[in-house]
Design a protein around this nucleic acid. Structure first.
Length: 324
RNA sequence: GCCGGGAUGGCAGAGGUGGUCAACGCACCCGUCUGAAAAACGGGCUAUGUCAGUUCGAUUCUGACUCCCGGCA
C-alpha cells in the first residue's frame, strides 16, 4: 500500500488522485476532521476545481473513490480507534477489489497509529472519569498517575507531565489495567497489527512557502462559502464549544459568528493558527523512520518520486507480493 | 509658533517613584505525541528614540535634539 503524509497545502490529495489513476487505486483519508459530516469546506474535503460526488460510504473526487469521509456526526466523539477500525475495513474492501489502497492525510497521529499500531488501543475512553479528572490541575493529575503507575509517570516527558489530556488518558489506562489485573483476565490490548509492507511518501516545503499557500487557500474558501458553512452548523444547533475545540477554521469562525471577535481579527488569528499547525505537522516527519520526503518547491521532485515508485514497484513484483 | 502628552523587542502593550529591570498576547522558531491530535502541552527568540548630564550605578532623574499625537494659535 501507499501512504502519503504532509502538512496542509502541499497537494497530498492531488498527488494521491494522480497516483490512484495511474496505479488503479482508491484513497483512504487519514484526517481527523474530514471524518465529520457536514464539515466540508473547512476541512478541505471539497476542492472547487474538480468534480465531487457524495455517495454512501465514500466520495468520488475527480473520478477516484475516497473513503474515510463522513464517518461521524458533528458533536459525536471520534478517536484514533475509530479511525483504525474504519481504515482496516476499507483496506480489506479495496484489496478485495484488487485495487491499490492509498492512505492520504495530514493527521500524523492517525498515520503513525496505522503504521506502527497502538498498545493501549483496546482501552476505551471513560467519559465519566474524564469529566471528573478535568477538574484537577496538571500537578494533581500527575500525582494521581504517580500513585497509580509510577513507571508510566516517570516515563512522561516534561511537556506531557503538564498536559491534562495526556495525563487523564494515562490515568484512564492505569485504572483499566488495575481492574484487569484484579480480575486476572489479562489479554492483549493490541487489536491492530503494525503494517509492514508500505511505501510512505512525505510532502514538504519551506515554511514561508506553505504559509502563503495556506493563506491563499483560506481566502478562496472564505469566498466560497466557508462562513456560511459554519453558520449553518450553528443554526443546526451544534454546540459552539464543540466547534471551538475542533480548532482552526471552525474555532475562529465560530468565535466570529458568536460576536466574540471581529472578522478581520478572527481571520488573522486563524492564519496564525494554521501556520502553527503546519509546523507541528512537520514534526511528525521524524516519527516516520521510513518516510521518503519530497520538497515540492524543488524542480525535479516529481521525477524523483517516479523513480522511488518504480524501485518500490519492482521490488514488490520480484518478491511476488504485489503492491499492497 | 505656543501648551500638553508620548516615544519600550517584528507588532501590540504592561509595570516599577535608580540596583544585574522588563509581564502578557500576537508573529516567528524548535519540540512533545500510543483512544480528544486541526486538540492539548513544553521550550526558545528579539527591546527601553538620539545625544549629553547627575550618580558607585539610570529603563526609571535632568537637559537638548528627533519623531508622533492632541489642543491653542
Amino acid at each position: 500500500m501507499l501512504v502519503i503524509y504532509g502538512p496542509t497545502a502541499t497537494g497530498k490529495t492531488n498527488l494521491a488522485i494522480k497516483l490512484a489513476k495511474k496505479f488503479n487505486g482508491e484513497l483512504i483519508s487519514a484526517d481527523s476532521r474530514q471524518v465529520l459530516r457536514g464539515l466540508d469546506i473547512g476541512t478541505g474535503k471539497v476542492s472547487f476545481d474538480v468534480k465531487v460526488e457524495k455517495h454512501k460510504g465514500f466520495w468520488i473526487v475527480d473520478g477516484i473513490k475516497i473513503r474515510g469521509f463522513d464517518l461521524a456526526n458533528p458533536g459525536e466523539p471520534f478517536s484514533v480507534a475509530d479511525f483504525l477500525y474504519h481504515t482496516s475495513a476499507s483496506m480489506i474492501q479495496i484489496t478485495k477489489a484488487n485495487k491499490l489502497p492509498i492512505i492520504v492525510g495530514g493527521t500524523g497521529f492517525y498515520i503513525k497509529a496505522f503504521i506502527d499500531g497502538i498498545n493501549s488501543i483496546g482501552i476505551p475512553a471513560d467519559q465519566k472519569l474524564r469529566s471528573k479528572l478535568e477538574k484537577l490541575s496538571a500537578a494533581e493529575l500527575y500525582q494521581n498517575l504517580k500513585e497509580l503507575d509510577r513507571k508510566r509517570a516517570e516515563l512522561m516527558n516534561q511537556s506531557d507531565r503538564q498536559n491534562p489530556r495526556r495525563l487523564i488518558r494515562a490515568i484512564e489506562i492505569a485504572l483499566h489495567n488495575q481492574k484487569q489485573v484484579a480480575g486476572k483476565r489479562k489479554q492483549s490490548t493490541r487489536n491492530h497489527l503494525p503494517a509492514t509492507n508500505y511505501l510512505l511518501i512525505g510532502l514538504t516545503a519551506p515554511n514561508n512557502f506553505l504559509y502563503s499557500k495556506v493563506d491563499k487557500w483560506l481566502q478562496t474558501r472564505l469566498d466560497r462559502g466557508l462562513i456560511e458553512e459554519v453558520r449553518s452548523l450553528l443554526d443546526q444547533g451544534i454546540d459552539p464549544d464543540w466547534l471551538d475545540n475542533l480548532g482552526l477554521e471552525y474555532r475562529w469562525l465560530t468565535r466570529y459568528l458568536k460576536g466574540q471577535v471581529a472578522r478581520d481579527i478572527a481571520v488573522e488569528r486563524l492564519k496564525g493558527d494554521i501556520h502553527n499547525f503546519t509546523r507541528r505537522q512537520k514534526t511528525w516527519f521524524k516519527q516516520f523512520k521510513r518516510i521518503k520526503l519530497f520538497d515540492i518547491t524543488e524542480k525535479n521532485w516529481q521525477d524523483k518520486l517516479e523513480k522511488t515508485l518504480h524501485v518500490c514497484y519492482t521490488q514488490n513484483r520480484d518478491d511476488g507480493q504485489g503492491t499492497s
